[in-house]
Structure formats: C-alpha cells, structure tokens
Amino acid sequence: MIRLENISQSFKHHSSKIKILNHVDLVIQQGSWVSIVGPSGSGKSTLLKIMTGLLKPDTGTVYYRDLDLYRMGEREKSDFRRRHIGFVFQDFKLLPYYSVLDNVILPLYYDKKKQELYEKAKMLLLSLGIQEPLFSRLPNDLSGGEKQRVAFARALIADPDVLVCDEPTGNLDRENRDHMIEILRSFNQQGKTMILVTHDMEVAAHSNCIYLLKDGLLLPNEVNV
C-alpha cells in the first residue's frame, strides 16, 4: 500500500551535512500496524513527513497504491493527505481558540456542510469517550488524555485509510496511554493501516512490525511480534 524506495535525506548543520536517512526502503501493507522506533533525533519524524508527502526527500520517492506522491502537485498532495491520512501528534496540535467540536471538524472545514460534520464529530467523540458537556470547551480545559482523544477524533473525521501517529502517548499517563492503545488497536482491527513513531517499546509491541531507525538506516531485520 505504501512503498518507500531509496529514501535519503540530509540536513545542513553549519557548514557540514548530516545524513539523517540513508537509502531507506520500506513497504507497508494495507491493514498492517507498523511502528518505527529509535532514539531522539534519529529521523523518525522526518521519515513520517516524507512518507506523508510533507517533505520531499533528497533522493527516492514514496508510492501510495502505485501513485508517486512527489509527482503530485501541492493541491493534489493536500487532497491526498486530507482524504487518506489521519494525523495524531504528541503535542495534540489542538487550536486553543476553537471548541472541542470545532477542532475535530477542522480537516473537512471547507469541504462539507458544517451540520453534517458536527453530527459525525459528536459520534466520533462519544465513541472515544468524550462526553457532550465537553464539546463546547476549549482544549486548555481538557486533561491530556481527553486532548489526545479529541486529536484522535480529528484524525478520524475524514475516514482515512492510514493513521499516522507521532509519539501519540508521549504526553499521557499510564491509564490514558493504555486507553489510547485500545483505541489504536480497534482502529487497526477495522482494516486500517497504522504507522506509529514512538520510542515507547511497550506501545510499539502492539504493532505487526517494528522498525528501528538508527544512523540513517531502517534496520532490515524486522522484529515480528
């Protein structure tokens, strides 16, 4: 479903160049749950950005169902992300001035009728355990777990095929982390693809495949769980 071919990426640091990804190849099948682990600064987030069409690599390309992401225009890439990929971030990236409900509908804000979106958002939030009284609240008034569930609802609003999570449990306590893992598992059980970047091996252990990103290389010996 997602194929990364010969991906290399380096960044300039003063006068020298640091190679962060070195001829990386990766194939992710539909419905699989892939975790990428590695130390801080190993290039996990960079790989996610490249994978989702947000950062053009120095070499190589990314295919989504045989579509070359980097041959698409800016508008096509945006449409692709909006329709096929849901994002969950470590810092939630909830807009502080929008209510919970408004944050959830943001991806499709300019695509569909608001009423229809609100209905769907409410159902999603309820299914994720966010009760109605919180719908009109501002994100700052929510707990960390609630914020992450709201962010998860926002990722699911467009009904994506792929869920990309960048350290989704990094800011959560144990109870909330376990709850989040349950949510991810149920999403994966619906046949959706999960790509998880984490350095929490307990979370990674729930995936089908774990890749270790180190020194620019995605270690070839997969750890099958």
Binding site: L54, S78, R81, I85, F89, L106, P107, Y110
Partner: peptide
Amino acid sequence: KSEFQMYEMIGWTRRTRLWH
C-alpha cells in the same frame, strides 16, 4: 506557526490556508 503546520498536515492547501 504550529497552527499552520497542523493545517498543512491535515491537508489544507496553501490557498485554503491563505483564505482562512
């Protein structure tokens, strides 16, 4: 800045972001 990062990630085109 992070707001606009998020808009880009969730698939808003440059035009949509500009318009917004």
